[in-house]
Design a binder for these strands. Structure first.
Length: 576
RNA sequence: GCCGAUGUAGCUCAGUUGGUCAGAGCAGCUGAUUUGUAAUCAGCUGGUCGGGGGUUCGAAUCCCUCCAUCGGCUCCA
């Protein structure tokens, strides 16, 4: 066997060493599987003993020993009978299942010391070739990833070619922890979620609310520019509405129980679309009116299983930056192109420029709508992506049953991918609601409907933003843009005057008029990540100036207030 | 929902085998200080130890249960 020493190989081999160590320490271990993954590797085990963090240390030490032993990885091939009997002998029921599943004639094994594992390889030459590794965590994981199956214990770890890479990876994990939006959210007093109010429900504190307001204000302004009309719909709707839309049939698991008012059931909305459609149908529509573009920051509530909740990134009540475009077949291409461009532009403004775009097409089996509709829609989506020269991945058959879609994912600080923008066709709802418009030939026609969100959900997007900026919101988004710090009581009037002047210029300014020393005030201002701190003391008062300290650029020295205001205005407009 | 871990003042955490163990720092408040670029000093107020139930003469500590959070899995129209 040739040994291709890729990071993947190294990690896969390290997973074997992990399994070997665990087997040595816990002889009753039944092995699951143990692949390499993008951040390292894992191995699943069925062990009676509940693994703890301290067990991890013990296992890691044993792994170090195995590495020191420099045992060879020996390759061998067994036929099915031999493979099965070997695994039976070792009571490896999961491996037996794998052998049966694979249905091949021959099976390759790798042996390292007394440890042998079913594996297609490749592997490193011997265990001594592992230069740097670390076990990271234990977690539960279903056998074969199915909820129906038994839950095994999974150990995560990582490995690198050298200690330096490992260290920098671990540092990155530390860094990511510091950026965690849940931590920063508390430190910067942006939001909270409490046991008292309910899991997955967000309290937007004034500072967070301020930033949200700026985001939403910008969002609205841009939507008007892009030819959208704003819409508001209620939080609950009659059962019949959701029956017509199909949500009570298809989405019921995610919906909360109804409230009964005068013998009518009302459901809290999990989506905004039905309301927009009802409005569309409010009057006879002519092709001359299309496209109709309705945008709404609509707050929806969905049941999410308790174990899936995660800070702002997965919640039960959230506000979609939703819109529905209802148009004629002729308009589909233009609308999609415009929407995709809009989406990318919007994400760019918030500092995101790394995207993973997925184009999902018609599922093989369950779907609604006609073939030519799907083709036209898919063509529009693909053409738009290509026109903008964006790389994308094709997810053949990955579309929803009601239409094809584009999903845009961005990466957060910890390398997790989060879906923000989505642009999806819907062939289902126009049918169900019998939507129509009168064409130029005087006949009633069925419009195309496009459902789209650019930021996805405000809550999730805010969480991603916090991590992206590490809490250092750019000037235009910062809740407090300038904090004025007076040196002593003698400068208080002058300092307050400065604040008032800044406020008059629509600059979000605040004052720290406590009787603390300037060092303390600066420390506090830095901790709060305020973009600009202004020091006002005797010198400034005498010279009629301010001393500016920028969060990102350090001390900018003494300048006139007018000069400072123009810097702020300039940077705000440019969104830096 | 599932597996595991965790839950002590607003925050970060101490609390040895159940018996002055309800504590510290920061924050907050009150005073003093009037300060020149990352923590001025002093005093004070904060907690049914996540909720409920149980064992015990006695529970933050042991048991049960519920809730929430964390790491994952699963799910993600």
């Amino acid at each position: 066997m040739t040994v291709a020493m890729t990071l993947e190989t190294l990690r896969h081999s390290t997973a074997h060493v992990l399994a070997q160590a665990v087997t040595e320490l816990y002889p009753d271990t039944i092995l699951g599987t143990g692949p390499s993954i993008s951040t390292g590797f894992y191995y699943d085990f069925d062990i009676k003993h509940k693994l703890t963090q301290s067990d991890l240390n013990r296992i890691e030490n044993r792994m170090q020993e195995i590495v020191k032993r420099k045992t060879q990885f020996e390759y061998s091939v067994l036929d099915k009978q031999e493979a099965l009997s070997l695994m039976r002998e070792k009571n490896q029921i999961y491996k037996i299942e794998l052998i049966e599943d694979l249905g091949a004639a021959d099976f390759s094994f790798y042996k390292c010391g007394s440890f042998i594992d079913l594996c297609k390889g490749p592997h490193i030459k011997d265990s001594g070739e592992i230069p740097a590794f670390k076990l990271l965590s234990v977690a539960g994981a279903y056998w074969k990833g199915s909820e129906e199956n038994k839950m095994l214990q999974r150990i995560y770890g990582t490995a690198f070619f050298n200690k330096k890479d490992l260290r920098s990876y671990l540092n990155r994990l530390e860094e990511a922890k510091k950026r965690d939006h849940r931590v920063l959210g508390r430190e910067l007093d942006l939001f909270s979620m409490t046991e008292e109010t309910g899991a997955g429900l967000v309290l937007w504190h004034p500072r967070g609310a301020c930033i949200r307001d700026i985001i939403e204000g910008y969002w609205k302004k841009e939507h008007y520019k892009a030819g959208y009309e704003l819409f508001y719909s209620p939080h609950i709707g009659l059962a019949d509405l959701w029956k017509t839309s199909g949500h009570l049939d298809f989405y019921n698991d995610n919906m909360y129980s109804p409230v009964n008012i005068e013998n009518h059931d009302f459901y809290i909305k999990p989506m905004n679309c039905p309301f927009h459609i009802v409005y569309y149908k409010n009057t006879n529509r002519s092709y001359r009116e299309l496209p109709v573009r309705l945008a709404e920051l609509g707050t929806v509530y969905r049941y999410e299983r308790s174990g899936t909740l995660h800070g702002l990134l997965r919640v039960r009540g959230f506000t979609q930056d939703d819109a529905h475009i209802i148009c004629t077949p002729d308009q589909v291409h233009d609308e999609i192109l415009q929407t995709l461009k809009f989406s990318i532009d919007m994400l760019n403004v918030f500092g995101f420029d790394k995207f993973n775009i997925f184009l999902s097409t018609k599922p093989a089996e369950k779907y609604v709508g006609k073939q030519d509709q799907w083709e036209k829609a898919q063509d529009a989506l693909k053409t738009a992506i290509e026109t903008l020269n964006l790389p994308f991945q094709l997810d053949e058959g990955g579309g929803a049953f009601y239409g094809p879609k584009i999903d845009i994912k961005i990466e957060d600080a910890i390398g997790r991918e989060w879906q923000c923008s989505t642009i999806q066709f819907d062939f289902n709802l126009p049918e169900r609601f019998n939507m129509s418009y009168v064409g130029s030939d005087g006949n009633k026609k069925r419009p195309y409907m496009i459902h789209r969100a650019l930021l996805g959900a405000i809550e999730r997007f805010f969480g991603i933003l916090i991590e992206h900026y590490a809490g250092k919101f750019p000037l235009w988004l910062a809740s407090t843009q300038v904090k004025v710090l007076n040196i002593s009581e003698h400068n208080l009037d002058y300092s307050r005057e400065i604040v008032e002047k800044l406020k008059k210029e629509d600059i979000r300014a605040d004052i720290d008029d406590s009787s603390e020393k300037i060092g303390y005030k600066i420390r506090l201002g830095i901790k709060q990540k305020v973009p600009y701190l202004i020091v006002t003391g005797r010198n400034e008062q005498d010279n009629n100036t301010v001393s500016v300290r920028s969060r990102d650029e350090g001390d900018l020295g003494e300048m006139t207030l007018d000069k400072f205001i123009s810097i702020i205005k300039n940077n705000t407009v440019n969104k830096v």
